[in-house]
Write a protein that binds this DNA or RNA. Structure first.
Lengths: 140, 140
DNA sequence: CTACGATCTAGAGCGAGGTCTAGATCAAGC
DNA sequence: GCTTGATCTAGACCTCGCTCTAGATCGTAG
């Protein structure tokens, strides 16, 4: 890839915000916090230029955050990647641990869902019978 | 139910904390914030005594919180219940809206899960092939 | 009666995860 | 050259949801 091709593919912070769903504030915050793998390139004027690899990494960050990974873990993962090859086992462990947490979360949510669904059914049934049943007094 | 039976069934804040998983601090906080349906009864000495109905409500609160309902919504729900019969439609709406959010959350988590699973598979495969493949450089 | 642990109130403090502000600079269009 | 909008930095500020502290009181076991 030539320099001009790289420049053509690179994106401004605003464009990256659009593509990732993160705010420009959050993007700068993530960078300060060391959550990115490399330092973001700058134009001669000092503006950030994100490469497609940067964006790919950010999209993964978004997925990990969305699923509840704390910023600290994300930072740790970024550090491992920065260190380069040799620590793949640790990266794997980090991801797999998180996957287990996500599984637990899904299960917990499904339990909540069934409790809520049951309550919704109770109210629906009551309303379907109409106000005629004036004595019904839901405790909750 | 006689007064003494009610007393026998009632629980101290510590016992309720155990049964609900909330801390005693959180229980007092919830009360202050108006998240409970009624005022908690007190002993002559001023200690709280929770009824089984209080505990049942708290268990529902826990499920709703666990599934991401904000305290403000929980408070709103509690207010509706406090107002008594007549607003069941609104309660239903509140719960059903939340159920939809939970569904969306579960779906989002499942997407995250599949992204993570894929990444885990990539690393596993790499590690299974061993370090012989020295040129492999994961971008993330 | 004395300890000692549980509970009380009011209010301060905290950690996570951003968000926003001020004031300056950059870059593109007219 | 001038205007306008995007971006820059450093750092203050915010919301949420508790958590903790201090100092007093209650209540039970010995």
């Amino acid at each position: 890839m030539t320099t001009s091709e790289a420049a053509a593919q690179s994106l401004s912070i605003g464009e990256v915000a659009e593509r990732t769903g993160l705010s420009v504030h959050a993007l700068r915050f993530y960078e300060r916090e060391g959550l990115l793998v490399g330092p973001v390139q700058r134009t001669s004027g000092g503006r950030r230029r994100y490469t497609p690899v940067d964006v790919e990494w950010l999209l993964i960050c978004v997925k990990l955050r969305e699923s509840g990974m704390p910023l600290a873990d994300l930072k740790h993962f970024a550090e491992l990647v920065r260190q380069g090859p040799g620590n793949e086992a640790e990266r794997l462990h980090l991801l797999d641990t998180h996957r287990q947490r996500v599984d637990a979360q899904i299960q917990a949510l499904e339990e909540c869902r069934s409790v809520i669904t049951w309550k919704v059914a109770v109210y629906s049934e009551h309303l379907a019978r109409g106000a005629a049943d004036g004595l019904w007094a839901p405790t909750t």
